[in-house]
């Protein structure tokens, strides 16, 4: 709300120590920050970057799955996949709307995605060559996303927190349908079981990379935690995800592709799994645009945007003309 009023508005704040302290005191008292409230420029900038990146991820995330809608093996799977992809589109919208309340326009965010200056989750730069990939995405990618999003429901910025509540409510079926799909494959013939294992082998490491760089290398983490934009660090969330997923894989007879996975009862308070070294070179390569599908994803988004230009123009022209005709008739 109010977002278009903020576009181009002077959102500069005089950031005296007194102002910053008063802002921190509000955060510490768990008082949510709302769109027109005074906030440090860095708080605004961090949120625009983070929410924008989240929104782009939802939108680009429709592409790898959309790839399989027409080839879903049963009607039950097809309606589930259609509903899921439609949800992702909606989630992108909620998030773009939340970012817009900070004074950035939708058009500007779209431009930044298309020209490569804005990022989206590295995970969507991996291809989906088999049907089992749809199961792996729902189970692992949505599972990781939920792990990340649940604490964001308590983010200090009101519109982001509210968007996350809606997203989390809708997303719980996404993970379940993915896990169910994988389970069904593991109960099939040897080829089907192999297909599930192969998808898990390819998606496991990229999924745990989704939580981002390790806390020791993450440049944004400290201040975001202090401002309660984030509630947990990347490594904490990654650990939670691994601890939750290992027994799920075991239950359906699949093996996680990490020989170093081992229960360690001395890890953290209640124990946790030790795991192998993450290939951060691969992560940074994909983030920097050299993943398998980076070029295809942006090409698809650009085509959708360009091909839709005449529709947007026509809708605006029609609205303008109708308004004129109405005022003449009145």
């Amino acid at each position: 709300m109010y977002s278009q009023g903020l576009i181009g508005a002077n959102t500069e704040t005089k950031e005296t120590q007194e102002f910053l302290d008063a802002f921190q005191a509000r955060i510490d008292a768990e008082i949510k920050i709302e769109p027109n409230d005074p906030m440090p420029a860095a708080y605004r900038k961090t949120l625009i970057r983070m929410i924008g990146q989240h929104a782009h991820s939802e939108i680009v995330g429709m592409l790898p799955e959309g790839n399989w809608i027409t080839r879903a093996p049963t009607l039950r799977r097809k309606v589930a996949l259609l509903a899921k992809v439609q949800d992702e589109g909606g989630h992108g919208l909620y998030l773009y709307s939340a970012a817009e309340t900070l004074g950035v326009s939708r058009e500007q965010m779209t431009e930044e995605l298309l020209n490569g200056s804005a990022k989206y989750s590295s995970i969507f730069n991996y291809p989906t060559p088999t049907w089992a990939d749809i199961g792996a995405i729902g189970w692992l990618v949505d599972g990781a996303a939920i792990m990340n999003q649940v604490p964001l429901c308590r983010c200090s910025y009101g519109p982001y927190a509210r968007a996350m509540i809606r997203v989390c409510k809708e997303e719980s079926f996404h993970q379940r349908q993915g896990y169910e799909l994988m389970k069904t494959l593991t109960e099939g013939n040897e080829d089907q079981k192999q297909m599930a294992q192969d998808a898990l082998n390819r998606w496991w490491w990229p999924s745990i990379m989704m939580f981002g760089p390790s806390d020791t290398d993450s440049q944004h983490s400290d201040q975001s935690m202090k401002w309660k934009i984030k509630r947990f660090t990347n490594d904490e969330l990654r650990q939670k995800f691994i601890d939750a997923t290992v027994p799920q894989a075991k239950l359906i007879g699949l093996t996680l592709p990490d020989p170093d996975l081992k229960w360690n009862e001395n890890k953290n308070e209640d124990g946790g799994y030790d795991f192998g070294e993450i290939n951060w070179d691969e992560f940074w390569k994909v983030v920097k645009g050299h993943g398998m599908m980076n070029k295809d994803r942006i090409r698809a988004r650009k085509k959708a945007w360009d091909d839709g230009a005449w529709v947007r123009d026509a809708a605006l022209a029609y609205a303008k003309k109708s308004e004129q005709q109405n005022s003449e008739a009145a």
Binding site: M1, S3, A83, Q86, D87, G90, L93, Y94, S97, E100, R106, A163, R166, E170, R312, A315, L316, Y318, A319, S322, E323
Partner: peptide, 24 residues
């Protein structure tokens, strides 16, 4: 209030609101 969206006119805004905000 549940959220916001972009649309050229009231009719399209209404259709988009129905699609986006009443799926469940």
């Amino acid at each position: 209030h549940v959220g916001s969206l972009h649309a050229a006119d009231a009719k399209m805004a209404m259709q988009a609101a129905r699609d986006v905000y009443t799926r469940r």
